[in-house]
């Protein structure tokens, strides 16, 4: 058994179909829906933590991609735009788990595997360089 976090992007034509149900029925996968944004007939985004046998997970992902659904491995929905970031450190003030911290040379580093997605850093960033992808 393994656990994996994936971000699914549904194009317009795939928004009306019960894709997640197929993952359970055909591929025997368990999943937690962590975030969902589905606008029927427009587009959708789904952040899932899926659990199952490695082969089943891979087959499930192939199935999703065959149905034009974008699948991306992901650790955190928080992204830091390095072009906008000036490494001031304001975001580290609110990151309780140390996912955002300053290196020894005072650059900002983002350990996305530690992120709990509280999203306080999005508000704390004066450069608006941090955003949630969904």
């Amino acid at each position: 058994m393994m656990t994996k976090k994936i971000l699914l992007s549904f194009p317009q034509k795939a928004t009306g179909q019960p894709m997640a149900m197929e993952l359970i029925k055909t591929y025997h996968l368990d999943f937690n829906i962590l975030k969902a944004y589905i606008d029927d007939n427009v587009k959708g985004t789904l952040l899932l933590e899926i659990k199952g046998e490695e082969a089943d997970i891979e087959a499930g992902i192939v199935f999703l991609r065959q149905n034009q659904i974008g699948v991306k491995d992901i650790q955190s929905i928080v992204e830091v735009d390095e072009k906008k970031c000036v490494s001031c450190g304001a975001c580290t003030a609110v990151c309780a788990v140390g996912a955002l911290e300053m290196t020894d040379d005072w650059s900002l580093v983002h350990h996305d595997d530690k992120c709990l997605e509280c999203l306080l850093c999005v508000k704390a960033c004066p450069m608006r360089a941090i955003h949630a992808i969904i």
Partner: peptide, 11 residues
């Protein structure tokens, strides 16, 4: 208590 900078030493 954790301390955090607000001005960029790097820059």
């Amino acid at each position: 208590i954790k301390t955090s900078p607000l001005s960029s030493l790097k820059m």
